[in-house]
Design a protein around this nucleic acid. Structure first.
Ligand SMILES: [Mn+2]
Ligand SMILES: [Mn+2]
Ligand SMILES: [Mn+2]
Ligand SMILES: [Mn+2]
Lengths: 220, 220
DNA sequence: TTTGATTTTTTGATTACTCAAAATTATGAA
DNA sequence: TTCATAATTTTGAGTAATCAAAAAATCAAA
């Protein structure tokens, strides 16, 4: 049985692989993402490599093996189903479920997760718009534009928020930018690093490019 | 923050203190209850003692300190609320929630447990009839008779099952002896180690004294 | 009260995870 | 190409939890 730490590392590597362009995830990136010392990540990566869960190229980085990917996706499934459960059944706010899910993902049994999946009607998206992997490990791919590269002055619906940090989600929530809400991008100014939006919910809002790129949308 | 192991030891000591008559719980009893080697329990007991969570008398045993009791009761509250939640909201069977609760009790946040408590209407008993400690740490005491010492040929209602072992609960369930059900004790034979019952649900049943003593009842 | 059995503690190790700081390797600008 | 900088790995160490087996203490008969 994988330990909690191993599950967290695998999930982290999976997520870094997704957004990063190159094939290999450097150990330093893992260390930063998990808030551990660089040497700690290196040590764990060796353990994972010895267990056949990653392919490790010293001084380059790691890549999940097939076994590692399977495990990571399973953890991610539990995480996202738990998040949705906390929102829909428990009534927690979508912007504050991540921390709880990060602990519960290691404690829920297969039996329990199957019941939750059933209760929620086999959902495909979590409260942040992230895809929920299927029980067999399939993750739906999607390529929504974000607020930096989508069309200007065109109605869009928020599809996904790709940053789970509580502070960021609270900001997003404060500006009425929760998934499902409608908006259009009024203008962008690269020099000022500003994206001006018109949100159906909260009126005019201005975001930096960094923040704007984390909000994925779907044209209507 | 206490580790998962420490929470499990404290909960265990609390439970052993409840049923055992003497004041001190021997380390060997803890080791047996938690399925660890005797030396492991001794080592942990010293750690707990150093943290001021128990009073430790070498070669005699331990007793929870006030701080230890408070923590233990908190864990127990989480455990029992989670059990009831799994039965009432998730729809799991009362005889199979213990294992899940034993892991979830370390992963649910105060926020989440407060919501669960609210959803369930501030319940006082878990699915096994065990009292749920209040948020402030008060545990309702009750002294129900059991099937060994209750009146003969008198209608009773099952109040509590004081053994969480899955095999035992499945047996109890199979004989229709779930909390709330009605029965009367027909006869007892000490030499044959047999207690004969008439259950409203499952007709005539025979139990050994050991098993019968774990089923607490309330005269009607 | 002696002694044999039982219980508990001690000892010596192991696994898992972590850090700080030193050593090494890679990278990119001059 | 060379060298300073940055990233990575190695080293040495510590905490937490565990076990097997030896040693010590307690208990219960005889
Ligand atoms: Mn986690
Ligand atoms: Mn999510
Ligand atoms: Mn537990
Ligand atoms: Mn219970």
């Amino acid at each position: 049985m994988p330990t909690i730490a191993i599950e967290d590392y695998l999930k982290c590597i999976y997520l870094e692989e997704q957004q990063g362009k190159k094939g290999l995830v450097p150990t330093g990136q893992i260390a930063t993402a998990l808030s551990v010392a660089p040497g700690t990540a290196t040590a764990m990566v060796k353990t994972l490599s010895d267990s056949g869960l990653v392919h490790y190229e010293p001084y380059s980085g790691v890549q999940l093996s097939e076994a590692g990917r399977k495990l990571a996706v399973h953890v991610l499934r539990r995480h996202r189903l738990v998040e949705l459960f906390l929102v829909q059944v428990i009534g927690m706010d979508w912007s504050e479920v991540h921390e709880d899910a990060d602990r519960l993902e290691h404690a829920v049994s297969d039996r329990l997760i199957a019941r939750i999946d059933e209760m929620l009607g086999h959902p495909t998206l979590d409260p942040h718009g992230d895809p929920i992997p299927t029980a067999s490990g399939v993750v739906a791919e999607s390529n929504h534009p974000n607020l930096v590269n989508c069309d200007l002055e065109r109605p869009h619906q928020i599809a996904r928020i790709t940053d789970q940090a509580a502070e960021f989600l609270r900001l997003v929530e404060r500006h009425g930018l929760r998934p499902g809400n409608r908006l259009s991008v009024l203008s962008r100014d690269e020099h000022a690093d500003a994206v001006r939006l018109l949100s159906k919910d909260a009126g005019e809002v201005s975001l930096g490019f960094r923040a704007a790129s984390k909000i994925l949308v779907q044209p209507l």
